[in-house]
Each structure stands twice: as C-alpha cells, then as structure tokens.
Amino acid sequence: MAGALIHIENLVKKFGPFTALNGVSLDVYPGEVHALLGDNGAGKSTLIKTLSGVHQPTSGQIYVEGKPVHFRSPRDASAAGIGTVYQDLALNQLMSVTRNFFMGREMTTGPRPFGVMQMREMDRIAHDEMVKIGIDISDVSQAVGTMSGGQRQTLAIARAIYFGAKVLILDEPTSALGQKQQMEVLKTIKRVRARGDIAIIFITHNEIHSKLVADRFTFLSLGEVIGSGTKADLEGEDIRRLMAGGAEMADLEQELATI
C-alpha cells in the first residue's frame, strides 16, 4: 500500500501442525503508532518475531518501503531498519549506560576487536540521544541496574533509533512497570512519533494505553486479524470485546456468575 513503511500481506506461520498465524495482513505508516492488541496466544509474539527475523514465514510476504524482503536472521531485519525492543530490553545491568548503548557496535579507533573505544564521544551521543526522547541522564557512566524501568525502556528505544531503526517494534513496553513509569514510556512513544519518520508497532495488553497513543489498531485472535482500523474507525466499537478475542463480555459475565 502506498506510503506504508511496512506492508505485510497474508502472513502464515506454522510450527509443525500448529498454525500460529493464519493469513495476517498489516500496514504500518511512518509517524504513526500502530497498536497490536490481542489476548495471550493470539499470535502477537509470532508476528513480531517474524517481522524481526527470528522466524521465517511459512507463506506470505513482508514489504519494507515497497520492496519485498526475506529476513533470514535478526541481523537482516535490523539492517533493513526494523528495530525490536523486547521485554527484557537486551540490556546488561552491571554495565554503564554508554556501554549498553553501544554494546556490540562500539565506536573505536584501531583494528577490530582491539580498537580503543572513543568513550567521550560515546558518552555524549548516548546522553544526547536519550535527551531527544525525553530523559536527561545526569551520569551516563552509571550502571543500568540503578535505572528505573521507564529509563531502561528509553535507553533501549533511543539505542534502536540511533542505530537506524525506521520501524520500532515495542513488545509490551508498559507491562512490567508501575503506573507512573508506564506514563513515562507512553510519553517517550509520543515523542518518537512526533519525529514523523519512524513507524511504531506497539504491542500491548492494555486498551487504555493503546487508546492514549495509537493512531491505528489491529486486533489478533487465534492467529487471525479480527478487527482493525484507525482511531476514528474504531470509535464506538467495543475494544474490550475485540481484545478478549471476540468473546462477548456479557457471556463472560454470565459464566462468572454461575460459578
């Protein structure tokens, strides 16, 4: 589709006899937050793992900026500009902010891997990139273990953007945080959105969070899309019903009442 950074067409992923994704289509646009919602086991994880090159699709096609792509590894996906921020954030607690920011991609002078790190320059970049999306870390040599959950999210997101992510996949970034921290992360998402050039896929369980930041929604259930649209399209729709995999809340309430 025109303008879409990522266009997913009829993606199918089978693990042996188990069909995890059964023909999922999705468009993600730059400068937009696309919320991906669904209950546990709906196929959200499989979808993002396919997008980030961990799994190869059984059939279907992924297009990045209109060009068909085949990711054989996470490295391929990351080279194509897809940055995934997993729940564990891929951070090392005992290492400093800067060392984490540049982990595996250190700026050095001299031959690899014995090149000397340009620590001052790296400190400056890590600090500035995090300021851009909203937190001002006073000391980038502090260990990541001393940071709050929200700060860690910001670090992981800033890192993904700095290293060329055009599409940012956030895997339940608010799920393990307290209320205030969740709001920090939502603010960060908004700031990244405001740049206008980055497409964000926001995976969440939380309908309130998705309503606060998302422009477009896709609901997954049992490996299929059961509802999608822009914020305006879904006005008045029962998001909670879609999130529960299409089950009527009234039915659930009735069931609960009989116990």
């Binding site: 290492m95 060392r99 540049f102 050095t108 001299g110 891997p113 014995f114 000397v116 790190m117």
Partner: peptide, 8 residues
C-alpha cells in the same frame, strides 16, 4: 577497547 566491552 571493544573486546573489553564484549567481555563484560
């Protein structure tokens, strides 16, 4: 150096 960061 870079290898040091990798070791940590």
């Amino acid at each position: 150096t870079q290898i040091g960061n990798w070791i940590y």
